[in-house]
Design a protein around this nucleic acid. Sequence first.
DNA 1: CTGATAATGGAAATGATTTTCAATAATAGA
DNA 2: TCTATTATTGAAAATCATTTCCATTATCAG
Lengths: 157, 157
Amino acid sequence: MPRGECRGEGWWHGKFRGCGYRLTLGREAILDVLSKAEGHLSAEDIYMKIHPKCPNVGLTTVYRTLDVLSNLGMVYKLDFGDGRARYEFAEGPKGAHHHHHLVCTECHKIIDYTDFIDDEVELLNQTEKGLGQKYKFKITNHLIQFYGVCQECSDKK
Amino acid sequence: MPRGECRGEGWWHGKFRGCGYRLTLGREAILDVLSKAEGHLSAEDIYMKIHPKCPNVGLTTVYRTLDVLSNLGMVYKLDFGDGRARYEFAEGPKGAHHHHHLVCTECHKIIDYTDFIDDEVELLNQTEKGLGQKYKFKITNHLIQFYGVCQECSDKK
DNA sequence: CTGATAATGGAAATGATTTTCAATAATAGA
DNA sequence: TCTATTATTGAAAATCATTTCCATTATCAG
């Protein structure tokens, strides 16, 4: 029924096979949800979204798959301080939708921002290079988050 | 018995009292450990360090105190992906020891780096200002971490 | 010194994530 | 296409960091 993503459907086959992973219904469903989702889904969110179509995919599998995807670098695992991990499809640091996060410490609202990203990314790349050399690290990723209080939460006081 | 910190001992009194908090033995012990510790302590680490001197301070209190300190901005609560929160004494973004983190995703080793910090902080301040205005956020803090694989872990393969 | 109440600890509860294990399904090769 | 190998699975149980409960204790303003 869904059509748009048919073209893309295959691109993660290779990524899986190449690492000896098998491509299963559950994994496809999870990737499908993640790749379309706006926002930041928890394991349970994903489980819920998948359940109607794949009632036979358990929460355990969701966790296991997210772990695999995260290790493959296809998904970012994020912590916004609300006690559960959140997952976000990785479009790659150069991807069209690369963004950083602005986190409200009161209500846990998250704003994805792309403003200023260019300067940030440029600096980050430099820093990444420098750090990698100095500390002999193979740097694969970075995380930037700003924390504060959103307007609604400020007003409530 | 300890002498060096006598001078500083008082500086957090005010911070507590000002917010209606009471200053207790346990809280002092926890602050003391945190202010001296290199590295990134978990709640249990702190509990262990305190226990010999204050066997009557429970883990629950450690958690509660860390929560308070974190809310007061005196301590940063960090997540390095190893399943437990880590805490770090906040010397303030302008403090002498401000640093960011380089995290090995294999062995969870953490490197605190201060290189490049100046440029980073400058950019961050700008970004912070811009974001704060655009999204009406009162930004209080930021987090920057780089993830990668350290040399030892690379060599193991 | 004393009352109001913030803070405490220990045990029990919580809740996200992991592990276990026998059953199942994906894939490579015949 | 069929089969053997072995990765993957779901459900239930186990883990384990963190929180909550509640009766007791300690801090500190007056």
